[in-house]
Every structure is written in C-alpha cells, then in structure tokens.
Amino acid sequence: MVWSEVLYGVLFEPRATLRSLSIERPVIPAIVTFLAVAIFNLTVYRGIILKQSYAINDLEQFLWLYQIMGAVFSFFMLFVMAGLFSLLSELIFNKPNASGLLVCLGFSSLPGILGPALYYSAQIIDIQWLGVLCSLVIGVWMLVLQVLSLAEALELSTGQAVALFVLPGVFAAIALVLVIAIFALFGQGII
C-alpha cells in the first residue's frame, strides 16, 4: 500500500487498512508515523500552553524538556503495549502478533495529530468548549482504533478485543485496591 493510502485508510477505512497492515507489517513507516505525530503535537501543545501562560513564570524553558520526556515515554509505551497485548493474547487466545500489533498501534496514533490542532484552532477563535469537545472526540476515535488494532492484528472478535484492551487496566485497578488495603491494614496494626 502507498503511504498516503495507508494514512487515508487508517482515518476513514480503519478496519480493512489495519487488517492489511497487520499482514504486511511495515514497522519502520509505523514508527515514523508515530514519531511524526508526537513531534507535531509537541509543537502545537507548546503553542497552546504558552498561549495560556504568564510572562514572568519559568515554564517556557522547561516546556521542551517536559514535552520531549512525554514523547519518549509514549514511544516507549507503544512497544510496551504491543508486547503486553500480544503476550496476553497468546496466553488467553493463543494468537500472538507483536510486530503486527506494533504496526497497527503505531498507525492508530494518526488521528491524534488532529486533536491538538483542532483544540488550538478553537482557542484561536475563542470557542474553548469546541476545543475540548474535539479533543474528546479524537480521544475516543483513537481508543476505537486501538481496539480495532487488537481485533485485526490478533484476529479477535470485537468483544474479545475490548476485553483484552481493558484487561491490563482491570489488573492495575485490582492491584491498586490490594496495595491500598494492605497499607490500610498495616495502618490499623492488623498485619
């Protein structure tokens, strides 16, 4: 597939495009797309934050540092997510596809490039609620694409993909509750 077709397909024909990508596995283009989105958003977020900040504060010079740290972390998380979901899928459904999933998740970040740009344009025309609404819609769009990525890359049904997608979150919530409970019991001297 031509890159421009992939980009269009991810945005407007995601299921078929992600299925095709999970088979072809163009890892480098997927990573380049993910990084391009991150770098573009870095620039637009800078404009958004500085538009809301004050002259005297020291925010400006740290912004790049925070943003680059955020971009590096999200890049790291892309690999963690691909590995984790592939591992869980192998354990539960016996269907691993880490590299295919990496490609699909990388491309599924594509709508994220529109979020900050739309928010910034809403800020420029001074309609704040529209910016928030656009960001929410884009956020939901990306979540849907991530679930579709799981479904297509791991050949799961939509229900299975949703279950797999929320599983790490459920585990994390249970672990958090357990930690809080243990600390509470320690605090009361029961343990």
Binding site: T43, L50, K51, S53, A117, Y120
Partner: peptide, 25 residues
Amino acid sequence: VMGIIILFLLVMGTLSIRSAGRSAD
C-alpha cells in the same frame, strides 16, 4: 481530503510556532 487535512495541520503548526515565541501576557 488528505490535502485539506495536511493544509490545516500546516497552518496550525505554523501559527503555534509563531505564538510560542511570546505568551499572551
């Protein structure tokens, strides 16, 4: 469609780079 999206992103990117040079106040 892709052309419109890319044009929109270019405009927003340019505006944000310009405004990053100075804050509102």
